[in-house]
Write a protein that binds this DNA or RNA. Structure first.
Lengths: 360, 360
DNA sequence: TTGTAGGCGTTATCAT
DNA sequence: ATGATAACGCCTACAA
């Protein structure tokens, strides 16, 4: 450590060079391990660096090279186990490739996402991994491409944007889940999503701003169609974002005369909120209502009842996304990957439909 | 966007200046909103910047100012809901103060922590928030202070390091939890922690490398002492890190003739692993074993049975840590904060002790 | 009010 | 093999 006038200042290459009695460039070469340096000088420089506690300033290095060895990650909600797990996959993979991660949480707000992406770009991250809050509002993602920085999409695809994404075949699993429900005799099923209500009743042609929701739904609809079960607007309930909204949705959906006998929760947060609401309302699963959740987390099998769930390889999704980005960064083509598979894990939350037509 | 020879290059202040027909410094002033600029020129510069799609290079800016408006966060395990929640508190608070967050996950490994802290320092983060894996091995944390970068400790204190930390009075709550167990008649209690086994049987004077564990234990021991219940080595079981280890610990602990009738899980990960292991072993809570968990997450109340838990304000801890750091960064003294309070939430996982002396 | 010039700490190019 | 010097893009005296 060098103290100059009371204020600590980190030693720089110039300091090291001076102390070793060589030119800046020589010291830089010795320290950076590039170019050619005589063994004698190398040792002197390294010793000097050691004595001064020299550490390279990565910011300055990035300025020169134009590479920051940092990747930006923009997710909707780090409190959601899905993203927490994916972020760990990203972190681990990035770290072992020598990158670190700047994390931005958007609370699924497009405006926050826009600002986050801009900021990350301004900070010169080498590339980005984003789970876009909306596939409709993506100009800021195009900017990433215009900046020639690699972008990888997480969990959600965006039509018209040729950024690679790690695909998980979730539809096959939600179809299997729906088949299970149908086998048990359910005919009135509701799919609960946090997505904002697009306005107007849902129909097959209703455009969805999230491919992951669209995928889940397509599997469900396919199963229904295959059995000739009518698909109506009651199939989808939007706006289940946050415990309060989930509770409200639950009360509303379950109150009708033709209330569904089974619910598919689009993610773990919704399932959790639902479970709490149902407990408070005295609705018993699966006696009064059957439940399937998309995602499978450690708590899923210890809740009451253990939940039948669609398990997707979330950590691997994160790891694969990071791996794809790292390859892109090193100039390679994005690897062609077979879609990761999701599978239905059957536990105890699905039973026969309730006799009475109203749950509440 | 400016295309130069096929390779996109971001517009710089120089480009903007040239286009606006002014000097670099003038353009910089107009864009940075400092110094004095005539309205006429300001408009021209802003227009030019707009046309060129100019965005400041934050890296270069940081180089000049010596401030990166970035804080580094080093946590043990982002998959643990505790840290996920705390990180959100940190993120939200940091973001609204204009900072963003670089996240490093250490898997509670001191070596990874050391490297992470170094890297962050090299990247010139303005300050750090760290939950140290060990309070014994902290030379890298001293480096932070030598670099005159503010450091705030999360969840764990380190004796001899005068970094502020956000205190939570957890001992009072674990004491209350233990009192509850004693009231119900429990005498043989085991506290399960992920901490590495210090070697040799645990005793009151066994040094612990984690203040959060020490705090939890002190509350438990205080309750035991107050009732004159003997405190022996069986009180603490170390090494419950990861589901496998938790399972092994559970089997080992519960097998003895004098097996405990109640377990206190040091965190949510442990409780989760334990719940799974117990279900597999056919051990019913609270019939065969009573359980208290430290931390209270959304799933805690929907598991079977709903868990009696010590709730600590985790999001607030993260937010307060970030707030403290931001103040420090702006030159203010670290705010003097009253310890945050944790409280016991009584649910259904505590019952009377089992009659037979062996659980398994 | 505006312009000139130098510095931040590195990497990279060019001589020597 | 080594040294001098110029970028990188921004901020900031200081001068005009």
């Amino acid at each position: 450590m060098t103290e100059v006038g009371g204020r600590a200042r980190r030693a720089t290459v110039a300091d090291v060079a001076r102390r070793a009695g060589v030119a800046k460039a020589t010291a830089a070469r010795a320290l950076g391990g590039y170019g050619a340096v005589s063994e004698d000088v190398r040792e002197r420089v390294v010793a000097a660096a050691e004595e001064l506690g020299y550490r390279p300033n990565e910011l300055a290095r990035s300025m020169g090279t134009g590479r920051s060895r940092t990747i930006g990650v923009v997710v909707g909600d780090i409190e959601n186990d899905y993203f927490a797990l994916a972020v760990r996959g990203i972190s681990d993979t990035a770290a072992s490739a020598g990158y670190d991660v700047v994390l931005v949480n958007t609370s699924e707000d497009v405006e926050a996402e826009r600002k986050g992406v801009r900021l990350l770009l301004d900070k010169q991250v080498d590339g980005l991994i984003v789970s876009p809050a909306s596939s409709a509002d993506v100009d800021h993602l195009r900017e990433v491409e215009q900046d020639e920085r690699p972008l990888v999409l997480l969990d959600r695809r965006v039509p018209g944007l040729d950024a690679p994404s790690v695909d998980v075949d979730i539809a096959t699993a939600t179809r299997a889940a729906t088949d299970l429900l149908l086998d048990r005799g359910h005919r009135r099923i509701t799919y609960l999503t946090a997505l904002d209500d697009p306005g107007g009743p849902w129909g097959r042609s209703t455009p969805l701003v999230s491919s992951s929701v669209a995928d889940r739904l397509s599997g469900i609809v396919a199963a229904l169609d295959a059995r000739g079960v009518p698909v109506g607007p009651a199939l989808v309930r939007f706006g289940a974002r946050g415990d309060e909204a989930v509770r409200a949705a639950a009360e509303e959906v379950l109150r009708g005369r033709d209330a569904p006998t089974a619910v598919v929760a689009s993610d773990g947060r919704i399932a959790l909120g639902l479970l709490q609401a149902l407990a408070d309302l005295g609705v018993k699963v699966p006696r009064d209502l059957s439940l399937v959740m998309v995602d499978d987390f450690p708590w899923t099998r210890v809740v009451d009842p253990p939940l039948t769930a669609v398990r997707q390889p979330t950590y691997e999704v994160g790891a694969a996304a990071a791996d794809t980005l790292v390859r892109l960064l090193s100039g390679a083509a994005p690897p062609r990957r077979a879609p990761l598979v999701a599978q239905l894990v059957v536990r105890s939350s699905v039973g026969a439909p309730r006799r009475r037509r109203a749950v509440l």
